[in-house]
Design a binder for these strands. Structure first.
Length: 256
DNA sequence: CTTAATGTTCCCCA
DNA sequence: TTGGGGAACATTAA
C-alpha cells in the first residue's frame, strides 16, 4: 500500500494524534516485526516529532527514533477492534496506535541507519537527478524502484511518471538525455504532489491513520490498466515484468 | 491449483 | 562494480 504519497498522507494524519504524547506501554506481538536491536524502554517517553523519510515513518523520542516501514500491507490505525493481523501496539495517554500487517513485510526498527537512502524526489535538483542517471545501464523502471537511487517511489508512481514523461520502462537509465530526464523528474514531482493532495492511491485496502481512503487511483493512466486504451492515443496498455514487478506502459507513447 | 499483489534483501552468475 | 535473474519472506483474493 505505501509509496511516498500514501506514507506522507499517513504521517499527516498521525502528527496531530501522536505529537507530544507519552507512551504508556508498547508491545510487539509478532517477533518478525522488530528488526535489529530491540528498542530501549519506551515507557514514559514522549513522541517529540513524526516525520516521513522516503517510505519510512519516523517517531522521534528524546533518546532515539523508531522507524516504521509498512511493507506491502502495513497499516497504522487507532483503537481498532481485536484483529489477527495486529503486529504491534503503542499505548498512549489518549489512544492506542496499532500496527496491522497481513503479509508481515513491514518492519519497525530502532535508530535505523537511513544513510543509504537516495534523495527525496520532491527535493532533488535537476542536475543531481541527471548525474545519478549517468552511466547506469539498468532499465529506468528498475532504477526508480531502487530506494538508494531515489527514496519513496514505488511501482504505481514509477509507471505513472514514465507514462507522463513518455519514456519506455526498459530504457537504459544512462541513455536518457537531459531534456527527457528533466521531463521525468518534473512528471514525478507533479504526480507525487497531486497524489498527496488526493490522499494517495487506494487500490485494494490502503487507508490513512484515520481510516480514510485515498482517491488518486482514479487518476492512474496506466497502472493496473493492462489492455485498456491509452488515455492519450487509444493503443492498448501493455504489461511486462521487470525486476519481478509488473510494468504498465503504452507501447505507442513510450518509446526507447 | 495458479497467479498476482502499493516491498526489500540476499544469493548466484556473467 | 554492474546488472540480470531468481528466491525468499507471508497472506489473501481472484
Amino acid at each position: 500500500m505505501p509509496e511516498l504519497p500514501e506514507v506522507e498522507t499517513i504521517v499527516r494524519t498521525l502528527i496531530p494524534r501522536l505529537t507530544a504524547r507519552r507512551v504508556l506501554a508498547a508491545a510487539f506481538h509478532a517477533p518478525r516485526v522488530l528488526r535489529g536491536a530491540p528498542p530501549p524502554n519506551l515507557i514514559d517517553q514522549v513522541i517529540r516529532q513524526v516525520r516521513r523519510h522516503g517510505k519510512h515513518i519516523l517517531l522521534d523520542f528524546d533518546h532515539g527514533t523508531l522507524a516504521i516501514h509498512l511493507g506491502m500491507t502495513g497499516k497504522l490505525l487507532f483503537n481498532t477492534p481485536p484483529n489477527p493481523h495486529l503486529r504491534a501496539s503503542i499505548v498512549l495517554e489518549d489512544a492506542t496506535l496499532q500496527f496491522e500487517d497481513i503479509r508481515q513485510f513491514g518492519q519497525m526498527a530502532w535508530n535505523k541507519n537511513l544513510e543509504n537512502q537516495g534523495p527525496d524526489p520532491l527535493e532533488v535538483s535537476g542536475p543531481e537527478f541527471r548525474a545519478r542517471l549517468k552511466g547506469r545501464k539498468v532499465p529506468i523502471k528498475t532504477l526508480l524502484l531502487n530506494q538508494t537511487f531515489l527514496r519513496g517511489v514505488g511501482n504505481i508512481y514509477a509507471d505513472e511518471a514514465l507514462f507522463e514523461a513518455g519514456i519506455h520502462p526498459r530504457t537504459p537509465a544512462g541513455k536518457i538525455g537531459r531534456t527527457r530526464a528533466e521531463r521525468l523528474l518534473e512528471a514525478l514531482r507533479q504526480i507525487l504532489k497531486s497524489a498527496i493532495r488526493q490522499g494517495g492511491s487506494s487500490i485494494s485496502d490502503y487507508v490513512d491513520a484515520e481510516g480514510a481512503r485515498g482517491a488518486y487511483q482514479q487518476n492512474h493512466q496506466v497502472y493496473g490498466r493492462e489492455d485498456e486504451p491509452c488515455p492519450r492515443c487509444q493503443a492498448p496498455i501493455k504489461r511486462l515484468v521487470l525486476a519481478q514487478r509488473s510494468a504498465h506502459f503504452c507501447p505507442r507513447c513510450q518509446r526507447f
